[in-house]
């Protein structure tokens, strides 16, 4: 299979997955909740602080994603298993990597689309005052990396069960754990020798760096490795057919 054909198959699967998002009410509920909660939390404090800054928004975005990312990934494998369509999918002449990548990319595309709709927030801030662009660009970039990591983890968990609700709850717990181990208030109460490791492993601490507008290759490599690790584990689960 040459590279172009390889990518074409991913693209065909990706399109189909993205279409199922918009065919089901999940997409609209997701976007609705995301925009309402996001805007409400932002404007709630925006006028109190009286500063044209979006730092606030990006400080609670990881917490919104914590609920929304597993909601996007929960059905991706669990539903295929429950309805049996996985038997159709995996007997097609496609590789397990193509199937996993297509599902991951469709969830990422959907998350990116929702993030684009939330651009109204920095635009309003810029209209009302003098907005510093660095943290905005950094915030969105960080949100994409963090969201991608949540999605890779959630997708992997969806491959472990037939039950969407279980996939959602376990996904939420797993994303929460991965996020929280690097958070300041956890680090403050942890034994000092573990602090550097926990800070490095936590999804949150890397997000804070990028959201400040500081783009460090260390953080980007961390996120890409995290995503790759869980996509790789996902492929291992799928190729073992280990859900019977």
């Amino acid at each position: 299979m040459n590279k172009l054909q390889y990518l074409k198959i991913i693209y065909i699967l990706f399109k189909k997955e993205l279409m199922s998002y918009f065919n089901s009410p999940i997409a609209y509920v997701f976007i609705g909740v995301f925009l309402i909660v996001g805007n409400w939390l932002f404007f709630n404090t925006f006028f109190l602080v009286g500063q044209a800054s979006v730092r606030n928004y990006f400080s609670f975005l990881p917490w919104i994603f914590l609920f929304l990312a597993p909601a996007l990934t929960m059905r991706l494998w669990a539903e295929e298993k429950k309805s049996g369509t996985i038997e159709f999918l995996l007997t097609l002449p496609i590789t397990d990597w193509q199937a996993v990548l297509a599902k991951f990319l469709s969830a990422l595309a959907f998350l990116t689309f929702s993030l684009l709709l939330s651009l109204s927030i920095p635009f309003s801030a810029a209209w009302l005052g003098n907005l510093d662009l660095g943290p905005v660009v950094g915030g969105y970039l960080g949100a994409l990396f963090l969201g991608g990591s949540y999605l890779a983890l959630g997708l992997f968990i969806s491959s472990l069960t037939k039950n969407q609700i279980i996939a959602f709850i376990l996904g939420l717990v797993a994303c929460f754990s991965a996020f929280i181990i690097g958070a300041d208030f956890v680090l403050a109460n942890s034994p000092a020798i573990f602090v550097p490791i926990m800070k490095f492993l936590g999804l949150g601490s890397h997000f804070n760096n990028i959201a400040k507008g500081v783009l460090d290759s260390k953080d980007i490599i961390y996120y890409l490795s995290f995503i790759f690790l869980f996509l790789w584990l996902n492929v291992r689960v799928i190729e073992r057919r280990a859900w019977k």
Binding site: K16, S20, T85, F88
Partner: peptide, 8 residues
Amino acid sequence: TVPLYDDM
């Protein structure tokens, strides 16, 4: 089981 993508 004739698995099909029901939402399509």
